[in-house]
């Protein structure tokens, strides 16, 4: 404490160095990791693999961004994974049954499938938001409950089996198609994330989420409609999850009742590693995407270096704890 007052020049240099590391630490870690693994396995840095990583990132990035929206408000959404599963199964069922009934009318089948998926997302979000914001039930318990409910829905309507025969055109639309050589998932993800970025930064609703998470009491005193915004945040989260679910369904070409198995944990891990604070009010779309890139690149590198899957799980656990610790330092530094 005394030192800082005596030697302001040096300490401010030290502080800005620390701030630099805190700010760009993850990017540095990412580059170091890629280079380090490249020594062991040169394939890591091949253009084909990097492109592959980017494509895989799109899905986790959407899920991490969805999770980020509610983490901003000091909540989280455990139901995200099973919401993904139920959206996948429900939209696949609608599409296949509509195509079976009327093979000529493909566009309306696709539209209905997508609408069903998004509608289910809205419904799950409304349930979560209503319980959390109006009934005052803790976010953990609410989303634990909806986790079970969505899991039950997904497995009941599909009978626990994948729904096959999803129209090829759907996969083309949201997975294999390209516009000017850019793959469809990348376009969708970029569009969705850009829209989310604008929403969070350019609208009263978006900015309010930061205030609600940063200081709920201040938000209420300032006259913000906190309850309504909180419900909207959960709806937004689940709708984004539904978009990601549709993208994944297009990739697998079937509705999978177990599609969202690891998605909840991955999305929370990616968001937090990217720098979204669990204490609320801190985070951005950029952070969610960066975290998603890191998580994807890490598992890609470990896979290419032929590290045992079980050890990968152990390493991911360590990375999560380390990331929270860094977050702790970061908020302490501010």
């Amino acid at each position: 404490m005394n030192d800082t007052t005596l030697r302001p020049a040096e300490s401010s240099a030290g502080r800005s160095a620390a701030a630099f590391f805190v700010r760009y630490g993850l990017v540095i870690a990412l580059v170091v990791m890629e280079l380090g693994f490249a020594i062991v396995e040169p394939l890591v840095l091949s253009p084909g693999n990097l492109l592959n990583v980017l494509q895989q990132t799109t899905y986790i990035a959407v899920f991490a961004a969805a999770q980020m929206v509610v983490i901003l408000t000091r909540g989280f959404d455990l139901s995200l994974g099973t919401c993904v599963s139920s959206v996948s199964v429900a939209s696949a069922l609608v599409m296949t049954s509509m195509v079976a009934a009327d093979p000529g009318n493909l566009p309306s089948a696709l539209a209905m499938g997508i609408l069903t998926g998004l509608g289910l997302g809205v419904a799950v979000g409304l349930f979560n938001g209503f319980c959390i914001s109006v009934l005052n039930v803790n976010a953990f318990v609410t989303t634990l409950g909806s986790f079970n409910i969505c899991f039950g829905i997904a497995t009941t309507i599909s009978d626990g089996r994948p729904v096959f025969d999803v129209p090829k055109e759907f996969s083309e639309l949201m997975y294999s198609g390209t516009i000017l050589g850019v793959p469809a998932p990348v376009i969708i993800a970029v569009a969705v994330l850009a829209a989310l970025h604008l929403l969070l930064n350019g609208t009263v609703f978006g900015r309010s989420l930061y205030i609600i998470g940063g200081n709920p009491r201040a938000a209420t005193l300032a006259g913000l409609p906190s309850r309504r915004y909180l419900v909207l945040a959960y709806v937004l989260c689940s709708v984004l999850a539904a978009v990601g679910a549709l993208m994944l369904t297009a990739r697998t070409g079937s509705g999978e009742p177990n599609l969202g198995g690891n998605v909840t944990l991955q999305s929370i891990a990616a968001a937090v590693i990217g720098g979204v604070s669990l204490r609320g009010g801190v985070g951005s779309t950029y952070a969610a995407v960066l975290g998603a890139v890191f998580v994807t690149a890490l598992s890609n590198c470990m896979g290419l270096a032929r590290i045992d899957g079980y050890i990968q799980q152990i390493i991911l656990g360590c990375v999560i704890i380390a990331a929270i610790f860094v977050d702790r330092l970061r908020t302490g530094a501010r």
Partner: peptide, 20 residues
């Protein structure tokens, strides 16, 4: 550190060790 994240991390680690 938030207990949610710590125990999420240790749970991933412990499961990994058990499977390993």
């Amino acid at each position: 550190i938030s207990p949610f994240m710590v125990t999420l991390g240790t749970s991933s680690i412990a499961t990994g060790v058990a499977l390993l």
